[in-house]
Amino acid sequence: MISPSIFVFAPLASAALFTALMVVRSRNVIHAGYWLLPCLLAVAGLFGSLEAHFFVVVQILIYAGAILILILFALMLTRDVMDPKQRQTTKFAPLAVPLCIFVGLGGALMMARAPWPAIQAAAPGPAEQTKALGLGLIGDYALPFEVASLILLAALIGAICLAKAEKEPAAPEPVIDLRGEIELEESVSAGAADGH
C-alpha cells in the first residue's frame, strides 16, 4: 500500500508544468522544441513515481528519443520561415487564454473535489508487470495490439508518400563518355586487325 511520496511527485510535477509552459510560451520554436525534452523526461519520472517501470523506458525511447528528434528535424527543415521577432500567436490567442485556464484549472478543481478512494494495493514488480502486459498483448488485448500495428504501418506508408517530393527533378542528360567509346573502337579495330 505504498503511495508515491509527495516529495517525489511535487518536484516532478512542477518541472513538468514549468517546462510545458515554456514549450507553449517560447518565442523561438527551436527553444520550444528543446524545452519539450525536459518536459517529456519529467513525465517519464512521473510514470516512475507511479511504478509503471515499462512506460518510463518507453516514454524515454519513443517520446524523448523518436518523436522529439522528428520534431526537431522538422523545425530545422522549416527554420528560415519562423523569425522569433514576428508574431508567434494567432489572433485567437486572447480567446484561447481564458478557455485554457478554464479547462486546466476547472479540470484540476473538478478532479480535486471528487472523492477518490485511497490506494488499493501494491503494484506488481517490474518483471511481473511487463510479463502481464506482454501476455495481455498476445492474449486478451490482441485486437488493440493488431490495430496499433496497422496504424503504424499506415502512418509509415502515408508519411513516406506525403514527404516524397511531388515533382521529380528532370533526369540529367546522359553523359556520353567519349574516352570509353574511343577505347572500345580501338579495341574493336585492334581485334579486327588481329583477325586479319
Binding site: L17, I101, G104, A108, M110, A112
Partner: peptide, 18 residues
C-alpha cells in the same frame, strides 16, 4: 506525506490545459 490520485489528476488536467 503521500501523493494521491487527486494530485496526479489535477496535474494531468493542468498539463492538458497548457
Amino acid at each position: 506525506m503521500t501523493a494521491n490520485l487527486t494530485h496526479y489528476l489535477a496535474l494531468s488536467a493542468a498539463l492538458f490545459g497548457i
